[in-house]
Computed example of a mutant assay.
Amino acid sequence: MMFRNVVAVFALLMVLTGCSSFSVDERRAKASKIAAEGNLAPLVVATRSFMLQGFWRLQAQPEYPTVYIEGDGLAFVSGRPSFNPTPRNPVALRLAAVDQSADVIYLGRPCQYVDLKKEGNCQSKYWTSHRYSKEIVEAYETVLDNLKRQAGVGGYHLVGFSGGGAIATLLAAKRDDILSLKTVAGNLDIVQHSNLHKVKQLHGSLNPADYVRDLRHMPQRHLVGGKDDNVPPVIAESFVAKQGAENCAFIRMVPNASHNKGWESIWREEHRRNAGCRNKF
């Protein structure tokens, strides 16, 4: 009996230690540090439904900023919806910090980084079943529209990591001011992804794969990891194949990259590559 008690106490300590290592404040502090190292200043944008937290660096007269959209973050813990989706490892922010272009904007996902006590709309469905819903996409549209109106932005290059790749793709399919689309380990087909992992479908979300016809002429680069068990390369391969032979999409395999690791080192040269049609690569 004593042995069981010791084991139980040890397990509890491990859980508490693990949780304290990834508290929301520590996750926010980590993001701020990464942004500062990349010369990115804090950005907060209010939309009708959500407050979006991000970081940015813009010239006085920006023309075509690159917008980075974060992944799903800490959506689940031990199979249950987390209390706060702020990412432990903000991969899209790390990529934005590597990008030394003049005009860079990083946007977290709704309910990431912000004070959830002040955000009445931040229900867990928005980082689980409805993470790619119409209202989520509309929040990003509001941000992009406001920047065009207030800063005179002419158009955008979009980069999305993981679930942020889904959001970026949905935006690219809908808007006429997106110049190019890049995804990194992007979830480009949420139905196929759920089927692969044998989990419940995201019934409240839009599926990027349903919009392939609107993307056939969009310059695209989809980066996939050879060691990515979360979003394997077959997702991007199927997504591009659905666009037909006459498309502007290119897939780059990064052999040693997993879902969350191995992207920063190649991004230093990758972010400079222009997305274009097949004959332009």
Rank of each mutant, 00 (worst) to 15 (best):
L215A: 08
R216F: 00
R216T: 13
R216G: 00
H217R: 13
H217C: 04
M218R: 12
M218A: 10
M218L: 14
M218G: 03
M218T: 14
P219L: 02
Q220C: 08
Q220P: 04
Q220I: 09
R221Y: 04
R221K: 09
R221A: 04
H222I: 07
H222W: 03
H222R: 03
L223I: 13
G225D: 04
G225M: 06
G225H: 07
G225P: 14
G225C: 08
G225L: 07
G226D: 08
G226K: 14
G226W: 12
K227F: 10
K227Q: 14
D228L: 08
D228Q: 08
D229P: 00
N230Y: 12
N230M: 08
N230W: 08
V231W: 09
P232H: 02
P232F: 02
P233K: 11
P233E: 11
P233M: 12
V234S: 08
V234D: 06
V234Y: 01
V234P: 00
I235N: 14
A236E: 09
A236S: 15
A236N: 09
A236R: 11
E237S: 09
E237I: 04
E237R: 11
V240P: 01
A241M: 11
A241C: 02
A241Q: 15
A241W: 11
A241T: 11
K242L: 08
K242D: 05
K242W: 01
K242R: 13
G244E: 06
G244N: 06
G244F: 05
G244H: 10
A245I: 12
A245W: 04
A245E: 15
E246R: 06
E246H: 09
N247P: 09
N247W: 11
N247I: 09
C248R: 03
C248W: 12
A249W: 02
A249K: 11
F250R: 15
F250K: 15
F250W: 07
I251N: 03
I251T: 02
I251C: 02
I251E: 01
R252N: 08
R252S: 13
M253P: 00
V254H: 01
V254R: 00
N256Q: 15
A257L: 05
A257D: 05
A257E: 06
S258M: 02
S258Q: 05
S258K: 08
H259Y: 12
H259T: 04
N260L: 14
N260I: 11
K261P: 00
G262Q: 09
E264Y: 01
E264S: 14
I266P: 00
I266Q: 07
I266Y: 03
W267C: 09
W267N: 12
W267K: 06
R268V: 13
R268T: 14
R268N: 12
E269P: 00
E269G: 06
E269Y: 09
E269M: 04
E269N: 08
E269Q: 07
E270N: 02
E270M: 06
R272W: 13
R273V: 11
R273C: 00
R273Y: 01
R273S: 01
N274D: 10
A275H: 01
G276E: 13
G276Q: 07
C277L: 02
C277G: 02
